[in-house]
Design a protein around this nucleic acid. Structure first.
Lengths: 211, 211
DNA sequence: GTCTATAGCTTGATAGAC
DNA sequence: GTCTATCAAGCTATAGAC
């Protein structure tokens, strides 16, 4: 073998793990359908039967890949209900945590995006909707708290949730695009504060900063 | 032939057009990589050489598919600069037009989404970024007008653009998901107005409606 | 312009040895 | 657990007839 290649061959990392991270990288770069089993095993530095030994098939490795990040997402959502502070603080904190989780798993996030908002690509079913709806539900509760306490002005709960969700999503999307421009954690907070404070100058008070 | 199939066989529509709409439908349902040339021609009710006659190959039909909607997007952006009215009105109008364009081309929109924010799927390069940046640029100008005239309170122009973009995107995303819930044109306007007015109750004025 | 037929390749998956 | 060897099925693309 002249060409040992740069591939995934550290002996201390388990073969299982190598397969998983190679698959993650390839699904992230090429998409589920366009990635072949051959590419995954070559990049992991193993042969094909090894993949079929550890995972049932390409679908199996895909599902295993999504499992952990979405488990963490679920935990994070559950934890959000127990937080203390103002509704605004709690919403900012939750949004920030979700952003961090996505950024830490940006390759899985890209695959999720392309399949959830795009065509299924022949990938097996994964119940993204349940997580998404649960996330919206928790945000609705937080928003409702803010409305009950008078912290927020009277408005449609769901509309507020959509606005926050849109801002979280656009922050993630700046990272998914292959450009240098991205908002990051600070950007997310800034834009969310913009939403909380509003954009229109209020004639009943001077133009400028409020806080 | 027992089974004539439900396929695309209206004789009055040109073969070219049939191929294009079959491809649109399949890319939309399965994604670029997972769709085969065979499926496209079968659904269009023609044979394979016909596709290679009208379009160079699968890549050619894909590029042709994107051309028209993005041409329209471009036209729409250019037109936005000439509009009259307040900055807020012009932004609402532009956002609404963009949403309508996406909804009218929802199948192309889904393919765009999955490739722009997701992995390239083996699809040929299409310069989505240029359109996206041009859209952001026009919005920045409109926001700037609002800041100059004192219509908007002092804030970062780009942040305002991101907030608006996030709300437009989330509206489109509600349509892309395979759930019944979606915001629609009215929802988009409502949520954008929320952004303009802000969410937090201002202690310096009574809680409640402003307009 | 549209067909039938097929070349030439890549795919996911496994049998069987060690 | 991991290998070599292999397979059937499916793929894009085209040649050549009409």
């Amino acid at each position: 073998m002249i060409k040992e290649e740069t591939h995934n061959r550290e002996p201390d990392v388990s073969v299982r793990q190598r397969l998983l991270s190679s698959a993650a990288s390839l699904f992230n770069r090429k998409g589920y359908a366009a990635t072949t089993v051959r590419e995954i095993v070559t990049e992991a530095g193993v042969t094909k039967p090894v993949l079929y030994y550890y995972y049932q098939n390409k679908e199996g490795i895909y599902l295993e890949l999504l499992r952990e990040p979405f488990q963490k997402f679920d935990t994070l959502i559950d934890a959000a209900r127990g937080e203390r502070g103002s509704a605004k603080q709690r919403l900012l904190h939750l949004a920030n945590q979700v952003l961090v989780l996505f950024l830490e798993n940006i390759d899985v996030a890209r695959v999720f995006y392309s399949i959830y908002y795009g065509p299924p690509q022949g990938a097996p079913f994964f119940d993204f909707d349940t997580y998404h709806l649960k996330f919206q539900d928790v945000m609705s509760r937080l928003v409702n708290d803010g409305l009950q306490s008078g912290e927020f002005r009277k408005a449609n709960v769901e509309d507020i949730v959509w606005a926050i969700l849109g801002i979280i999503n656009v922050t993630i999307e700046t990272k998914l695009r292959h450009l240098e421009i991205d908002l990051g954690r600070d950007g997310l907070s800034r834009v969310l504060n913009l939403l909380f404070q509003g954009i229109v100058a209020d004639e009943r008070k001077g133009v400028g900063e409020r806080e």
